[in-house]
Computed example of a mutant assay.
Amino acid sequence: MRGIYAVFSLTLVLGCNIVLGNEKGELLEDDQSSTHGSACAKGFADCNGDPRDGCEARLSEASHCGACDVRCGAANAVCAAVGDDRFACLNGCPDKALAICNLQCVDPMTNVANCGECNHACPTTQNGEALCYQGKCRVACATGYHACGARCVGPSDATACGDSCTACPSGPHSSAACDKGTCGIACSAGFANCDGDMQNGCETSVFEDAKHCGGCGRPCGNSTRCVGGLCLPWGGMTPNGD
Rank of each mutant, 00 (worst) to 15 (best):
C148V: 07
S164I: 05
C137W: 04
L12P: 10
S9G: 08
C161I: 06
M237S: 14
T204L: 00
G201E: 06
A130N: 08
R138H: 08
Y145M: 15
D157G: 02
E129C: 14
Q32E: 13
P239F: 04
G162T: 05
Q199I: 08
K136H: 13
N200F: 08
G229K: 00
G116H: 04
W234K: 06
T159G: 12
V106A: 04
C93F: 04
G241Q: 07
N76K: 07
V78R: 09
G43C: 09
M1C: 13
G49E: 08
L59M: 14
T182K: 09
L131Y: 12
D84T: 12
C72R: 09
L10N: 08
D30I: 01
K136G: 12
G54F: 01
V153R: 00
L103W: 00
C231P: 14
C105Y: 00
R52A: 14
G128P: 11
A150Q: 13
C231A: 11
G214N: 10
N111M: 04
R52V: 05
Y133K: 11
C79D: 08
N119T: 14
F44N: 12
I185E: 01
C47H: 11
K211T: 03
A158I: 02
G25Q: 02
H64D: 07
G49R: 03
A41C: 04
G37N: 06
L230G: 06
V153C: 00
V227Y: 09
Q126I: 06
C40Q: 05
N48F: 05
G201F: 07
T125H: 10
G241D: 03
A6R: 15
A39K: 13
P219L: 01
S9W: 01
Q134C: 01
L90A: 10
G135Q: 15
G149W: 12
H212C: 15
S38D: 05
A192L: 00
G217H: 05
V106H: 01
Q126V: 10
D85G: 13
D107P: 09
C216N: 10
A140N: 03
